[in-house]
């Protein structure tokens, strides 16, 4: 395929992915909006004022960036894992396998589709947050870049999960036992400076911490970690997962008998 045809193939996959999550918006866009709105009510209005300040901000100001990031992560991941697994399950993956689309285009199409859902939910949640707090943006470039890279990273992770999954159980195990703990303990709700030194060190091994803090830095200008290092790490992880996914596709892992 020449570059023009590859572009067509890429946009075709992307459009199909966006059409899918828009078609079932009651399952893809609405639930995260409701969940996060509840967090806002509880932390912003009910218990937030009692917690007091965190890193020099009111608790709602502190927690909003974390919650936006959490919804981007869950939705970018969730979109690719369920869409690609569904495609495998219904065997419509064969439509792609018989076509001349190169594997990296298949991967990019699904990943950017997941990024689109992650960002769509991110925007919805951000708009909702405006009812509870004023949002300021200290470093626009950092903010946009880290959200995008994070969405890419988790979309890739979702893709890998889907390739290995053999049943619907397999696509909920990783989110429940890996993704949720990592995000909840990844500095969404608290600053790690509150933790004893040992747990601070442990937390630093959690990649989500770097993304959440970088995003918070973009908005509020404060961070528990070194932002430049966070970018290097996230980009590195993206590259790693990208090539691993590509390797799985090349080998036809669980896709071709």
């Amino acid at each position: 395929m020449n570059a023009g045809q590859q572009w067509v193939a890429f946009t075709t996959i992307l459009v199909k992915e966006v059409r899918r999550f828009m078609r079932i918006w009651q399952q893809t866009l609405l639930p995260p909006a409701i969940t996060i709105a509840l967090y806002f009510v509880i932390f912003g209005k009910l218990i937030g004022p009692r917690i007091g300040e965190m890193s020099g901000f009111t608790y709602i100001e502190f927690v909003v960036p974390g919650l936006i990031m959490m919804s981007v992560i869950t939705n970018a991941y969730g979109n690719v894992v369920s869409s690609f697994f569904g495609t495998k399950f219904q065997r419509s993956i064969e439509e792609l396998l018989v076509s001349p689309v190169p594997n990296y285009i298949i991967l990019l199409g699904y990943v950017i589709g997941g990024v689109a859902r992650g960002l769509a939910v991110g925007v919805i949640v951000t708009l909702l947050s405006l009812f509870f707090t004023d949002l300021q943006v200290s470093h626009l470039g950092v903010t946009v870049a880290i959200v995008f890279l994070t969405a890419v990273l988790f979309a890739l992770a979702g893709f890998i999960n889907a390739v290995f999954a053999n049943s619907f159980d397999d696509i909920s195990i990783i989110p429940t036992f890996v993704l949720t703990p990592l995000t909840y303990l990844g500095g969404v709700f608290y600053s790690i400076s509150m933790l004893p030194p040992f747990w601070q060190a442990v937390s630093l091994a959690n990649p989500v911490l770097y993304m959440v803090n970088t995003f918070r830095y973009g908005l509020l200008g404060v961070s528990d970690i070194n932002v430049a290092w966070a970018f290097v790490m996230v980009t590195g992880f993206c590259a790693l997962l990208f090539f691993f996914s590509l390797f799985l596709l090349e080998r036809g892992k669980r896709l071709r008998s």
């Binding site: 395929m1 020449n2 023009g4 045809q5 590859q6 067509v8 193939a9 946009t11 075709t12 996959i13 459009v15 199909k16 059409r19 078609r23 569904g86 495609t87 219904q90 065997r91 419509s92 064969e94 439509e95 792609l96 076509s99 001349p100 689309v101």
Partner: peptide, 26 residues
């Protein structure tokens, strides 16, 4: 193929048009 292998939830027209896209047709 012998077995049905399209997405059950997609519209007929989208299934065919998507396949055209996979083959690079503008």
């Amino acid at each position: 193929p012998q077995e049905f292998n399209f997405n059950q939830f997609e519209k007929v027209i989208d299934i065919v048009k998507t396949q055209a896209g996979y083959f690079g047709l503008p």
